[in-house]
């Protein structure tokens, strides 16, 4: 105990004194737990979608309004961006800032293209009178897909900030931690999209 053991606990002290833990490792653990909460969040939204997807209030269902070519394009773009974000991390592990930044920019552009396509899809639906207030099905659709889109958009802004920080500070312990976290986040959004694609779009048009 405190002072009593300070003698034989002494050699511990040095390794344990600096907040006694690796802050980056702790950040990553916290982020994993945050992702659990995000899984629950999306899970709840998926559940509401499944409950409501037949309640079209006399309006159109998924089969009538989903346009698969755009969705498939979105899927490929997002999957590719996940791959490029992985390449960014590899570049970071090699210590190559330039490559790291370039891959991040590629990822950013792909993500932005994804959001662009999604917004186009939404605008088109709303223009045709299939807005969020048209039926419970559409409310659930827009909220679920929109929440994913919002997550991606937040990720984009965040990525931009990190690109700026990287160009100023290079690869340090802190920036390395940040890149690890955002790449985890990006892969997570990719996984959520796969579920979205299957539950909303594929089951919707089948």
């Amino acid at each position: 105990m405190a002072q009593a053991v300070s003698q034989h606990g002494h050699d511990h002290d040095h390794s344990h004194d600096h907040g006694h833990h690796d802050p980056q490792e702790m950040k990553l653990l916290g982020f994993w737990i945050f992702l659990i909460t995000d899984v629950i969040l999306f899970g709840t939204l998926f559940a509401t979608y499944v409950v409501l997807h037949k309640n079209t209030a006399g309006g159109p269902g998924g089969a009538e309004i989903f346009e698969m070519p755009g969705v498939i394009a979105e899927t490929f773009i997002l999957l590719t961006s996940s791959f490029t974000s992985g390449l960014a991390v590899l570049a970071m592990n090699r210590g190559n800032v330039k490559q790291l930044i370039s891959w991040l920019i590629v990822t950013f552009v792909l993500g932005a293209a994804f959001i662009g396509l999604e917004v186009t899809e939404f605008v088109k639906l709303i223009g045709e009178g299939h807005g969020i207030s048209a039926s419970a099905f559409l409310s659930a659709f827009f909220t679920l897909v929109g929440t994913h889109g919002l997550h991606v958009s937040v990720g984009l802004v965040w990525m931009l900030l990190l690109i700026i920080q990287l160009s100023r500070r290079g690869i340090t312990d802190v920036t390395r931690g940040k890149i690890n976290v955002i790449s985890l986040y990006w892969h997570f959004l990719d996984a959520v999209w796969i579920f979205l694609l299957s539950v909303v779009y594929l089951l919707g048009v089948m």
């Binding site: 969040l41 939204l45 309640n55 659930a140």
Partner: peptide, 29 residues
């Protein structure tokens, strides 16, 4: 808590954007 966040958000979207998650009409539940 994420369930609470979603539930309240949906109720607000109903009230704010005229969605139909929990309304009587429009297929809400």
């Amino acid at each position: 808590f994420p369930i609470l966040t979603v539930t309240l958000a949906l109720l607000f979207i109903d009230r704010f954007a005229g969605a139909h998650f929990f309304t009587l009409d429009g297929g809400g539940n």
